[in-house]
Computed example of a mutant assay.
Amino acid sequence: MSVSLSVVVLLAIVVFVLLRNGALRVLPALATAGLGFFLASTGAAAPINAAAGGLAALLAQISL
């Protein structure tokens, strides 16, 4: 749970910075958020969560 919350916060910061700099427009950002929302309710959510957890574990081992 803490990994997914950290990823959400990090991605929210990235999107906010991109919107403020004008590198990302509002409608594409909303479309991407909608895609992520609906993707989370499909069968692809479990493999994506597993891959993110594996990447987090790999990064944790590298930093030690």
Rank of each mutant, 00 (worst) to 15 (best):
G43S: 14
L59P: 07
L19D: 00
R25T: 12
L10Q: 15
L18M: 14
N21A: 15
T32C: 10
G53Y: 00
A51S: 06
S6P: 07
A60S: 04
A44F: 04
G22T: 13
S2K: 10
G34M: 09
I48K: 01
L5I: 12
Q61K: 06
I48L: 03
I13S: 00
L64T: 13
G36W: 08
A23L: 09
L5D: 15
L27Y: 04
I62M: 07
A52G: 00
L24A: 11
V8G: 07
L11H: 04
N21R: 15
L30I: 10
S2H: 03
V3K: 02
T42E: 01
V3H: 04
V26N: 01
M1I: 08
P47G: 02
V9S: 15
A50W: 01
L30Y: 01
N49I: 13
V14S: 10
P28W: 04
S41E: 12
V26E: 03
A45H: 04
A46R: 13
L18R: 09
L18T: 06
N21W: 13
A33D: 05
A56T: 02
L10I: 12
S4W: 04
A50G: 07
L30S: 02
R20F: 12
I62D: 08
V26Y: 05
V26C: 11
R25H: 05
V7S: 14
G34K: 05
G54K: 07
A31F: 11
V14C: 01
A52E: 05
F37D: 10
